[in-house]
Every structure is written in C-alpha cells, then in structure tokens.
Design a protein around this nucleic acid. Structure first.
Lengths: 162, 162
DNA sequence: TCATAATAGTTTCACTTGTAACTATTTGCA
DNA sequence: TGCAAATAGTTACAAGTGAAACTATTATGA
C-alpha cells in the first residue's frame, strides 16, 4: 500500500486526498444510503428512485401537478413525466383535470394500490432512516440536520453566481 | 404555495415529509455540490464525473491499476474501464506494464497534459470545497466530518445484513 | 503438469438519463 | 381582439450506465 516512502514531506502529498474530500464523501454516503433504501422497495415493488419519490411526494401532497412535484422534489421535469407515466400505467397514480388550466394535470395516488403502496413502503423507508440515525445521539442528529441545511444553502448560493 | 389550509392537525400529516427525510436531503445536497464542482471542470476540460475521479485518484496515487482505482473510489469496474480508455485516448493517462502480472496495467497521469490537468482542476475543486465549508465554523466542520463518517459506517452495516 | 478456478480488464446489450425540440394551452399586452 | 411570449407536459435522440458475458492471464491443487 505504501508504494513511495515519505519522499516529500511529513504529510505525503497531503494537498489532496479523495477520502477527505467532502463532495466525494457526501456522494458516497448518499449513494450508500439510497442503495440501502431502494433495495427494500425495489425488490417489493419494482420502483425506480424517481418513481418512489413521486409516490412519496404525492402521498404527502395529493393533487400536485407534475411541475409542482418537480419543484418540490428538485427533480428533472422529464424524469417526473416518465415516472408519472409508468406509475399511471401500473394503476398507482391517476391524473385529474384542472378547472381553469387544461395544461395542468393534478396527480393523486390511486385510492387502491397507490395509497396502499404508500402506506406500505413509507414505513420501511422511515425505519431505515431511524436505524441509520440511531448511530447518532439526539444532539448529533439535531446538529447534523442543521449543518446539512447550512451546506445546502451555501452550495446553492455558490452555484447561482456562476 | 399554501394550497390547502390547516385542514387536519397542528402538524399536518406530519408522519412523512420529504423535506425532512434525511436520505432525500443528503441526495439533494450531494447533487447540488457535485453539480457545482462539475460545472467548473466540465466546461474547461469536458470531463465526466467518473473521469474526473479517476484523474483525482491517479494524481494522488500514481501507478494504481484500474481495479485499485475502482476500490479506492467505490466506483463501478466498467465505468472506470471506460473512463480510463477515454482519458488515454486524450493523452491524459498512460498505461504501464506490471512486472509480474501482465493482466494488471498500472496507470499514471501523463507527464504533460495529465498532470497539468490535475494541477489545474484540483485547486478549483478544493476552492469550491473551501468556500462551501466557509459557511461553517471550525467546530461545525469538524463535527460534520465526524458525523458523516459515523453515518457512512452505520449505512454500510445496515446494508450488509440484508 | 495439467485442468480448473480465480482475477484483470473489456465488450455487448438493454435500459436509464439528460438536453433539446416539440405540441398544446394560456398569458400578456399592443 | 389577436399575436408573441410563456408555461405544462411529452417526445426524440444521443450519451451514459450496469449486469452479464467474454478474453487473457495467473493461481491452485490433484
């Protein structure tokens, strides 16, 4: 593992170490977690991550249009459109009609399968989150949530002026 | 934005809110950050995320084989293979020969363009990270890194026994 | 020593994804 | 009113991705 000795300095080429690079670590963490959760509902229901998110959002906010789902989930417009299409084909989501604007299609989970799916999968996801957070103390959890929020704002600010 | 009033309870249907769901928040944060960084090097060098990671790893650990790069970056074997191929075609990475095992191809950044790319892009990525972390205090930074580590271990443990 | 298993890396194929272009409808304003 | 611009959502195309099959090479052990 130590191919070159301490050729240069006490902390060898320490200016960049991928393992300590925060963006990399966050990506790794996020992928690990998403993988863990999706393996649960993917096996059971054959849902993609986007589909699952749409279900989660519609379960919480019935009647949103596709665009509103997009906004709420910070997802891609096309991705949502496709997810909704597949969910509708499988009878999990239904499209209604908007009174004033015929372009907008309010979406709801279907009373039968859609809502059942929501009520079944959601607890699993929450259980995973709970188990995950069990590795932290209450103060750590609180702190972590706060810091994630701070970083999210900071990242958005950084990306804007670019 | 407030479509339905407080129809149900003081904390309306509070059992699941995507906005507070940690896996979702982390995914959002990671995507925002990755997007910010990649927009920097993508414009300049036309590098994909995987290619950039390979460059970062090889810059830090010259002479790794593709498999070792895969392990170090928690990346897909195929993705690395393709990234290396494109990087080699563009003269950014070179493949050497392994003394004992002709299956293994040690990889290095090319002395000219490859290392120049590394020296040019890396500071930008680090600068982004620095700006991002500037939104936290020193203690918060330390704490955040620690918590990310804890969660990463916890998530791996959770995913294993499954 | 020879056959089988294991490993490094590549290629193929089917599927997913994002960008851009498109249709349908509504809004803004001259 | 009526026409250009904006918006909701879909479609098309190109590029990216992973799983599995494949080649080449090395390790194992009867």
């Amino acid at each position: 593992m130590s191919k070159e000795g301490a050729t240069q300095s006490p902390h060898p080429a320490d200016d960049f170490m991928l393992e300590k690079f925060l963006p990399y670590r966050l990506s790794l963490l996020s992928n690990t977690i998403s993988g863990g959760i999706s393996s649960a509902y993917r096996k059971l229901y054959e849902l993609s991550v986007t589909e699952w998110r749409v279900v989660a959002i519609l379960g919480r906010y019935p009647g949103l249009t596709a665009t509103e789902v997009t906004e709420r989930g910070a997802m891609d417009k096309v991705a949502v459109s496709r997810a909704v299409k597949r969910l509708e084909e499988r009878g999990l989501v239904e499209r209604g009609e908007h009174d004033a604007d015929r372009r907008r299609l309010p979406l709801v989970l279907s009373p039968g399968d859609g809502q059942r799916l929501f009520r079944d999968v959601m607890p699993r996801a929450l259980a995973y989150e709970r188990q995950l957070l069990a590795s932290l103390s209450a103060e750590e959890r609180e702190m972590f949530g706060r810091l994630v929020g701070k970083l999210q704002s900071a990242a958005q600010r950084l990306n804007e002026k670019d």
